[in-house]
Amino acid sequence: MGRIWKLGDNINTDLIIPGRYNVTTDHAQLAKYCLYEAYPEFSQQVKPGDIVLGGHNFGCGSSREHAPTSILANKVKVVIARSFARIFYRNAVNIGLPVLVCEEAVLNSEDGQELDVNLETGEIRNLTTGQTFQAEPLDPFVARIVAAGGIINYIEMEGTLR
């Protein structure tokens, strides 16, 4: 289970990691500056296992992989959103940051509440309210990459990209 950090719609990559702070590949640096200006309390208080809830179009904007990397580097368990921008979603899947689409969970959960998420089944339980929700199933190809733990592992397992 993890504490919910509930963010709004159109959380773009400049909010997640401003361009001034992503001139690095160092995970500790990226973790520190995740949502640094937009949600300072998040960057100061986020703990391993916490959960990010987003509205529509989470991760829109730049292709910078620093954005999902900065969230993963904070050991966030999963990002659940009403919808994801395409490049962010793909990047998250590639690097092994769990992402789920679940409109109901986002609409019926509040910042600071606790969620329990089963990443294998997509079952989401709000421990504060007792409500349960079911995330949308993954695209079959995406599911194979997720199961492998990212695109690099997937290619290593398959021997090639196919």
């Binding site: 292709s63 992989e65 793909r90 990047n91 590639n94 690099i152």
Partner: peptide, 9 residues
């Protein structure tokens, strides 16, 4: 557009 891992691949 894609992220760096896709491009590395």
């Amino acid at each position: 557009g894609m992220g760096s891992t896709d491009i590395g691949v």
